[in-house]
Design a protein around this nucleic acid. Structure first.
Lengths: 237, 237
DNA sequence: TTGACATATATCCAATTTGGACATAAGTAA
DNA sequence: TTACTTATGTCCAAATTGGATATATGTCAA
C-alpha cells in the first residue's frame, strides 16, 4: 500500500494519535553567559524539577502560531526571534502519554529578558553550560544545578549546538542584542555562545567587512571611559 | 494556568489532535547533481503530482523509528544516514485534515540509489535545482519539471539548504559516497551540493589535513588513465 | 614495446585572511 | 591637567586559500 492509497483510506478515528506540543527555549546572553528561562513543576511527574514553558498545539493553529502564542502567554512578549529547533519524539519522553514536542527557541535581548522575568514571576533564570555534544546543564546564579524535567536537558543541548552552528552565517547574534549596540557587546555575545575568547581587531574587521552593521554616529553612554560607537543591524539585501 | 497544571488536567479525549506523519527525502548525488526519489500520486488531492514517500507515525513508535520503517518499506533499504530535517505544521498543508509532517532526509550513495530505484518501481528519480532560498524544483532526466504535491517543494528546498550548511563541518558528504571513494568523487559531491566549482589542490589539501580520510593503498579500477587512490571515511574520534 | 593521452598527485608562489602586538584617540574622574 | 580605561586604527607575521605548473602513473593504440 503506497502513501497515496494509505492517506486516502485513512480513517481519522481509526488510529490513536499522539498529542503535539511546543516547548519554548527562551534564551538570552546575560552577564557573558547563555541563559534560559525555566518554570518549576509543581505536579508529578518531575515534580520540583525545572521545565521549559510549553503547551499543546491547537487543531486550528500552525506550529509557528503555537510558538508565538506560548511566547505571549508565558513570557508576555509580543515579539522575538522565534525559530523552530528540533522535534522530540521518543515514545516514553512523557510518562503519562504520547506527546511529540516541537522545540522552538526564542532569542531575546538581555534587556527584554529582565522585563520578561519581572512580568512572569513563575519563571527563573538559569545559566547554561554544555559539553561539545549531549544535554546541557542549567544552574542558578548561586551555582546550584537544576534538575531538568522530561528531555528538556537534551533540548537545551540541541539549542546550544544550533546556536553555535548558525552564529557565524546568520543574524542570530543580533537577536540577542538591543537595537543599538557596540562592537564590544556583539563580541561578548559571540564569546558567550562559543565559549571562547576572540581576537578583538580581527573580530571588528570581520564584522565590519561583512556589511551587516550600520554605524549610527551615536555613542554609548554611562561608560567611565571612552564610549564606543553604536551600530544597528542591517540585514543583508 | 501554567504548563504543569495544564498537562495534569489534560484530558486526552478533550482536544482534537492532529495526525503526525513522517516524510522521507531520499537523496543522493547522481551524475554530478542532487537527486531525490519521488512517487506519483494516483489519488486526489494532488493526483498526478509527485510526492515524497511518507507515512503516519505509530502511537508506539518514535519519530526516528518511523523514519527507518518508511525507509525500509518504501525504499527497501536497511540502512542509510537518516537525519531529522524540519517539521512542517501549516494548518492547511493537507486539504483533507490536519497533518503535521516531520521531514527526514535519508542520504544514500549513488550505487545504493540505483538499487532502490530497481527495488521500488513506483519511485522515480528527479534532479533538484534550488534558488538561494525557497522551494526546490524537481526535473526528470529529460528535463520535464515535476509538479510537487503538498508542501514537498518547500521540504526539498529546506533539505538542500541544510545539506549545504552542514556539508563542510559534518560527515554528510561521506553518506553520499560508497565506502571506498576517490578524492575526485568527494569533490564531485561537494560541487554538486554547493553548485560551484572548487579549486582542486586546495580541496585535496583541506580534506587531507582535516584527518577524516584514511588512505587504503588501493586504487580505483576501470579508469582509462591514472587511477586515483581510494580513501575511507574515518569519523573524528 | 613504445609513445600519446588523461588524470592523479606534488610543488610552488601570490593573494587573501587571520592573529596579535602596538600606537593613538577619546571619554571620565580626581 | 593628568591618570586611567577602553575604543579605534595600524602594522606585520602567520596561516590559509587560489591557481598555475610540473611530474607521476595508469590505459590504450600503433
Amino acid at each position: 500500500m503506497d502513501e497515496a492509497t494509505f492517506l486516502e483510506s485513512y480513517e481519522p478515528a481509526a488510529f490513536e494519535r499522539p498529542s503535539v506540543a511546543v516547548d519554548l527555549i527562551l534564551m538570552s546572553v546575560v552577564d557573558g553567559a547563555p541563559a534560559v528561562l525555566l518554570a518549576r513543576r509543581d505536579q508529578h511527574p518531575f515534580q520540583g524539577d525545572w521545565a521549559l514553558p510549553g503547551g499543546f498545539v491547537g487543531i486550528g493553529e500552525s506550529l509557528d502560531e503555537a510558538a508565538h502564542r506560548i511566547l505571549a502567554e508565558k513570557a508576555h512578549m509580543a515579539d522575538a526571534w522565534v525559530e523552530q529547533l528540533y522535534t522530540f519524539g521518543a515514545v516514553d519522553r512523557d510518562p503519562r502519554m504520547r506527546i511529540i514536542s516541537v522545540a522552538y527557541f526564542a532569542l531575546i535581548p538581555a534587556t527584554a529578558f529582565a522585563a520578561a522575568l519581572k512580568a512572569a514571576p513563575e519563571l527563573a533564570l538559569a545559566r547554561l553550560t554544555v559539553q561539545q555534544a549531549g544535554p546541557a546543564e542549567a544552574r542558578l546564579a548561586e551555582g546550584e544545578q537544576l534538575a531538568l524535567a522530561f528531555d528538556h536537558g537534551d533540548m537545551l543541548g540541541v539549542a546550544m549546538q544550533r546556536l553555535r552552528g548558525k552564529l557565524d552565517y546568520s543574524g542570530i547574534a543580533f537577536a540577542l542584542l538591543p537595537e543599538l549596540f557596540t562592537l564590544r557587546a556583539l563580541q561578548d555575545v559571540y564569546e558567550a555562545i562559543l565559549d571562547t575568547r576572540l581576537n578583538k581587531p580581527a573580530f571588528r574587521r570581520r564584522m565590519l567587512d561583512r556589511g551587516w552593521l550600520a554605524p549610527t554616529g551615536a555613542r554609548e553612554t554611562g561608560a567611565s571611559f571612552r564610549p564606543a560607537e553604536l551600530y544597528r543591524y542591517q540585514p543583508p539585501r
